[in-house]
Design a protein around this nucleic acid. Structure first.
Length: 237
RNA sequence: CCGAGGGUUUCAGGGA
């Protein structure tokens, strides 16, 4: 079971969801009883390929095994349902999950944000805080992405302010997401400002800025930005 | 006793 589990984990992590599912089915044909970790990996696989039918089947097995009250398993279920776009079910699992934490909430927020559903993402983000759960880096990343999807510049500035006062003020992933978010909100000046104040920049920072200019038809500025980074010795990808 | 386990930022191309 453990060696199969390790294989399934590998497949799931490398985006080979179908192979993971195949191996999982083979396991069951061989009468090997999946443990908790195998369930977690297979849920990830289901989410990544949108295999909702398989996912619901696994959910049933998890309930039968009494694993469904485990916060890690519960969060994986939420993630699976959210990635499959079945938000009502994701929400139901979240509401019934004892000890739900910032990751459980983050799974739904991420699902909405990834799906360009900015408004519901931010609603859940607020609800989480109303319940006294403090946002962490990942949930903030997702909330910022949601602002970008929504074009909600006011919400964006609000969250940005909070970020500045937090220990994430100099975080590169957060900074990159801010650059992208402001660009998607149509405020390229803000993007540029954030980019310039980053302590370090990487390829993602530049790409976000260039894409922002390009998507607003500012081809000259996009070009200029590209030349800038090359002058600084960075290689575009 | 050991190993495997949860939400994570940017960008391109063809067809229906």
């Amino acid at each position: 079971v453990v060696s199969c589990g390790a294989m399934i984990a590998g497949y799931a992590q490398f985006g080979q969801g179908h192979l993971a599912l195949e191996l999982f089915k083979q396991m069951q044909l061989d009468d090997l009883k999946p443990n908790k970790v195998v369930h977690l990996c297979i849920l990830k696989a289901c989410g990544s390929i949108g295999a909702i039918d398989e996912g619901m089947l696994i959910h049933g097995q998890i309930v039968d095994n009494g694993f469904d009250m485990d916060v890690v398993v519960g969060s994986s279920l939420i993630d699976m349902y959210a990635k499959c776009g079945v938000y009502e079910e994701a929400r139901k699992v979240l509401d019934d999950l004892p000890g739900r934490d910032v990751i459980s909430w983050g799974a739904i927020i991420s699902g909405f944000a990834q799906d360009n559903q900015g408004l519901p993402a931010l609603e859940v983000f607020d609800k989480m805080q109303q319940e006294g759960v403090k946002p962490d880096k990942v949930s903030i990343l997702c909330a910022l992405k949601a602002c970008g999807a929504l074009g909600g510049i006011d919400q964006a500035r609000l969250i940005h302010k909070e970020v500045i006062r937090s220990d994430l003020a100099n975080d590169l992933a957060i900074g990159n997401t801010l650059v992208d978010m402001y660009a998607k909100c149509g405020s390229l000046e803000d993007s540029q400002k954030v980019l310039e104040t980053l302590q370090n920049q990487d390829i993602v920072s530049w790409n976000a800025m260039i894409a922002g200019y390009a998507q607003h038809g500012l081809y000259g500025l996009a070009q200029q930005c590209l030349e800038n980074i090359q002058e600084q010795g960075f290689k575009p990808d």
